[in-house]
């Protein structure tokens, strides 16, 4: 099964004719993702990579039955694109853009949540259910199909850890980045809830980093989980008070430190790896048991 997306997910790409949107749409199509439509205002009626392009998401949904959207629009237009997708009846929105103003993010999440629409991101690499579908910008080569779910606050660190697991012959059910912003559409805890319900997922890897309290909140839920959870937290050597790339990655006073997160997770029974590559050995041990 996997979570959120599978081989039947019908995707509309918002911003499909842009430089980035067209390259990434092609890579997703190559992977086997069912991209049924693209949207670029003013380009309706044309085709790109044999995918029909529409002027509006509403039209794309009406004509193709798309249920999931991926955004490749400039950050300043992300809120507009999300609300358009929600109104068109899209049920899952993968918000790739970085640097979306946080007020816009709060507004679009509020709007989507009230209508039971899920947003992944912003600043997410997307979601991949290896072997089934890839709705994101991640390099496909590092993922392989299997039974480990990975949820990450960072994109590229997700690739590194998935790649390490794949090389060791450990495949994944679904992997996703929830986004590095202070406010995100879907939290670490919400993703863990989905993995808990998923038949294919036998163990979960959390890739966390400094800032915020998502790992601490997740630790509460993990106590009720019956699946093993392994974690790695980045940022041990990050100085306090500095935003480390992600707007959300900042230690403020005692909040958001690696120690606080590791302690909370360990207390919930999570095995915490010291380095990214150490995840492999820990997961191997769990699988053997």
């Amino acid at each position: 099964m996997g979570i959120l997306v599978d081989e039947n997910t019908k995707v509309v790409v918002q911003g499909i004719t842009g430089r980035v949107g067209s390259i990434q749409a092609k890579l997703m199509l190559d992977y086997g993702t069912k991209i049924v439509a693209g949207v670029t205002p003013g380009k309706g009626g044309t085709f790109i990579h044999n995918v029909p392009v529409y002027d509006t998401v509403e039209e794309a949904v009406a004509k193709t039955g798309a249920d999931t959207s991926i955004l490749f629009v400039p950050a300043a237009f992300a809120k507009d694109a999300v609300i358009e997708a929600v109104d068109a009846g899209i049920k899952l929105i993968v918000a790739i853009p970085e640097h979306v103003p946080v007020h816009d993010t709060m507004r679009m999440i509020e709007y989507a949540k009230r209508r039971n629409v899920k947003i992944i991101g912003p600043t997410t690499p997307g979601v991949i259910s290896p072997g089934k579908t890839k709705i994101g910008i991640m390099p496909a080569s590092v993922f392989s199909e299997g039974s480990v779910g990975i949820v990450s606050r960072s994109g590229t660190l997700l690739y590194e850890i998935a790649g390490n697991l794949s090389l060791a012959g450990i495949g994944q059910s679904t992997c996703l980045g929830i986004g590095g912003d202070p406010v995100v559409g879907t939290s670490l805890t919400e993703v863990l809830q989905m993995f808990q319900e998923d038949d294919q997922t036998k163990a979960v890897v959390i890739v966390g980093e400094i800032g915020g309290v998502q790992e601490e909140e997740a630790a509460h839920f993990i106590k009720q989980m019956n699946k093993p959870v392994v974690a790695y937290i980045a940022g041990r050597s990050a100085p306090p008070g500095q935003r480390m790339g992600h707007a959300g990655a900042i230690i403020l006073g005692e909040r958001g430190t690696v120690e606080s997160k590791i302690n909370a997770l360990r207390e919930a029974g999570v095995k915490v790896a010291n380095r990214p590559a150490d995840i492999v050995g820990i997961v191997e041990d769990i699988i053997k048991k």
């Binding site: 990450s152 606050r153 960072s154 994109g155 590229t156 660190l157 997700l158 690739y159 590194e160 590095g180 890739v207 980093e209 400094i210 790695y232 980045a234 940022g235 041990r236 050597s237 990050a238 480390m244 790339g245 992600h246 990655a249 010291n274 380095r275 990214p276």
Partner: peptide, 14 residues
């Protein structure tokens, strides 16, 4: 990516 860069610095320290 922020996470990978932080992890890299942590590993250099190690």
């Amino acid at each position: 990516g922020a996470g990978l860069t932080m992890a890299t610095i942590d590993i250099i320290n190690d």
